[in-house]
Each structure stands twice: as C-alpha cells, then as structure tokens.
C-alpha cells in the first residue's frame, strides 16, 4: 500500500491532517504533470486543487489494480483534459501579470526540480509535442512504469511503449541540439 492510500484511508475516517499529508506528498508532482498537459503553471495549480476536490467529493472508481498515485494522476489528467476542452485556446495572461507568472514558475521549479540535469530536461520538454511531454513527464519526473502510464493515459501498454519510444527519440534530438549529453535510462 502506498503512503497516499493509507493517508486517504485515514482522511475518510475523519482525520483532516491526512489530507495535508496527501497534498504535501503529491501536490508538486501532480501540478508538474498537469502543467505538461495544459502548459500553464497557474492553471495547473488551480487544476491540481480541483483534482483533490474531485478526489474527496466524487465516488471515485478506484481499481484495486492501480496504486493511489496512478489513480490520482488519472483524475488529474481527466481534469486537465476537461479544462482543455472548455478552453481550447488556453488561458490568456494579462501583460502586467506575465512577470508574476514567470516568478511563480521559477519558484515552482526551484521547489520541485532541484537537479540541474532534470531542469535541462524539463526545459527541453517545453519545446516538444504535448503528447510526448505528457508521457515523458510521467516517466522521468513521476517515476511511473509503462503499465501505470498506460492506465493513466487510457492506452494499451503497446501504444504507451511506442509513444514513449518516440517521445524519448524526440527529446534526445532536442537535447543533442542543445549539446546536452544524453544517457539512456
């Protein structure tokens, strides 16, 4: 059982501190993942909060075969896709807020991605296709297995492997363009 599952169980039994534990454990990773879908950190923060609300308010369909984290990220992905559907052109940021957004992004990156190499990968991800960014974020930053990713993305394992392979290739090309020494994981 992962930590999230035991915290969630305690929360359902009435321990509100357990919710803080869940948030503390998954918030930044989930936000980073949602950001890979919506490509807007401020929106990703709102959607992360919405994902936690859904976790508590809905009658979620958690499968015993999936871990709590996989389940949470699946809800996060659906929340992000819903937002994308309602906002096909993304959210426009007023020009006087751009500096604040950039500062927030920097703060987030400092908190979540401390490793220099990971920062370089994260930056490279921004310039590849959203599908590739999505799958690589789950694989490299959130440490999900191919099987878990296939559950989150609702794709077959075979399709997920193919997607991951193409995404790695695209990322490798991008990193090589920037003289980054690429090592296979």
């Amino acid at each position: 059982m992962d930590i999230g599952e035991s915290s969630y169980r305690r929360f359902l039994e009435g321990d509100e501190d357990a919710l803080v534990e869940i948030i503390s454990q998954y918030r930044l990773g989930l936000q980073n993942y949602i950001n890979s879908v919506v490509n807007n950190l401020s929106v990703a923060e709102d959607l992360t909060e919405e994902t936690f609300v859904k976790l508590l308010i809905k009658k979620p369909k958690h499968k015993n075969t999936a871990s709590f984290k996989t389940w949470l990220y699946t809800i996060g992905r659906n929340t992000a896709l819903d937002w994308m559907r309602k906002n096909p052109h993304g959210r426009e940021i007023p020009i006087d807020e751009i500096m604040n957004v950039a500062a927030e992004e920097e703060q987030f990156l400092q908190l979540y991605i401390k490793d220099e190499e990971k920062r370089a990968v994260h930056d490279a991800l921004e310039s590849i296709s959203p599908d590739y960014r999505n799958v690589l974020t789950l694989f490299y930053f959130e440490d999900f297995t191919v099987e878990e990713i296939s559950k989150i993305l609702k794709k077959s394992k075979k399709n997920t492997s193919v997607l991951l392979h193409r995404a790695r290739k695209s990322l490798k090309n991008k990193l090589e363009e920037e003289d980054f020494i690429y090592e296979n994981r």
Partner: peptide
C-alpha cells in the same frame, strides 16, 4: 503559492 495547509483548508471548504 499557497501552503499545503492553506490548500487543504480551501479544498475542504469547496
């Protein structure tokens, strides 16, 4: 950026 506790309180309110 909200603290984890602040976020939890907002979520519970919602």
């Amino acid at each position: 950026m909200k603290t984890d506790r602040e976020m939890a309180n907002d979520i519970l309110c919602k």
